[in-house]
Computed example of a mutant assay.
Amino acid sequence: MRVVVPRRMWAVHWEVMLVGLMVLVQVERCMQLRATHPMHGVVDSINENGGPYIGLVMAYPTEELALQSSAFFVPSSQIPGLTLLEEGSTLGQWDDRWCRCYLCDDWRANGITVQILLDTFEIKAIVHYGTSGSANDSLNLGDVSIPNYVAFTGSWKWKEFKSAEGILTELKFGAFNLPEKGENLLATIEFTPQQLYSVEKPMEEIFWLPIEPKLFNISTKLQDIQLQQCVNETYCLPEAPKVVYGLRGSTADIYLDNAAYREFLFKEFNVSTVDEESAAIVMTSLSNGVPCIVFRGVSDLAGGDEKLSSTSLSSLAAVNALSVAVDFIGLFGEEAVINDQ
């Protein structure tokens, strides 16, 4: 599957691009680049000869393959690979100006790895794309969501039976008793906000992490982008996928495959997509004062019926999310050129 890149994309100043290519490694392998690291000279050279860059961040092999198989993936002729971490954390360049690194398999470790990316290279903005499950029935398979808020919904605490309601929405287990609703000794769980430490600002507790408004506004110009509809020559989606704006995304360190919980997230939090990375990436970006935007392609209905879950659409969702991200980068580059004039 190849992504067709409009000619106008290549008119953008690609020297401002950096791609952080993320795949899974063990948490204990995550480490910040030391000042004594033997690759420091190479990294300095990359920063001096280009930058500031845009970090393109992804998390799974399917999302990596979408980039590697695309028409705009060109390994560097000068530095095709740069190993920084023990598990082969590779850095390269896009069109002789791009880089990549590895992500860990824990949401907080994901944030650590993005922090390494920000500490190692001169990053102007983070563009994160990937696949997601849908919690919103109005989102179809293959659609690409551009959320304006994401939250980490995997952090919560047990509450005593029949205790008073908390500040945030609670999940009452009794509401899901079968065959009928009723009291449940499991009681409830209360979702908790995260502590955000950002540049030159006091610590604040925050639940909904905002997407950078300037980047989000630029992305609204992508409404007419044509997305891939067919998985192969024999199977196509019934409707052409579309780009959807202004929804909310949820991140947790679980793969959500439960219809009741999916419906709860949509009803109580107005969550439309679920994933395992977005909140960590956005929070790390906010902490460093680096703008960030998220593109999530819908690959499944989280906890969907057997018919939907039996058909793998991850590749198509990854390609569509990448297509939107690439067109966004083109618009972002054009905007930067106009602002610099």
Rank of each mutant, 00 (worst) to 15 (best):
R2S: 13
V4L: 06
V23C: 12
Q26Y: 06
R29W: 04
M39D: 06
V43C: 02
V43D: 06
I46R: 00
G51I: 08
Y53K: 14
M58F: 08
S69H: 13
F73E: 05
P75K: 07
S77N: 11
S77A: 09
L84H: 03
L85P: 05
E87T: 09
T90A: 06
Q93N: 01
Q93I: 13
W94V: 12
W94Q: 07
R97D: 00
R97P: 00
W107K: 07
I112N: 05
V114S: 08
I123K: 02
K124Q: 13
A125F: 05
A125T: 10
T131Y: 02
G133S: 08
S134K: 08
I146P: 04
N148T: 04
V150D: 04
V150G: 01
F161P: 03
G166K: 02
L171G: 00
F173S: 03
N177Q: 02
L186D: 09
Q194I: 09
P202N: 14
E205R: 07
I206W: 10
F207V: 04
I211G: 03
I211L: 11
F216C: 01
K221C: 03
L222K: 11
D224I: 03
E233Y: 05
E233W: 01
P241Y: 01
V244S: 04
L247G: 11
R248T: 02
R248P: 01
A252D: 08
L256T: 05
R262H: 00
E263A: 15
N270W: 01
A279H: 03
A280C: 12
N288M: 11
F295M: 09
V298M: 14
D300K: 01
L301S: 10
A302K: 08
A302T: 10
L313F: 14
A318Y: 06
G333D: 03
E334L: 07
E335D: 15
I338V: 15
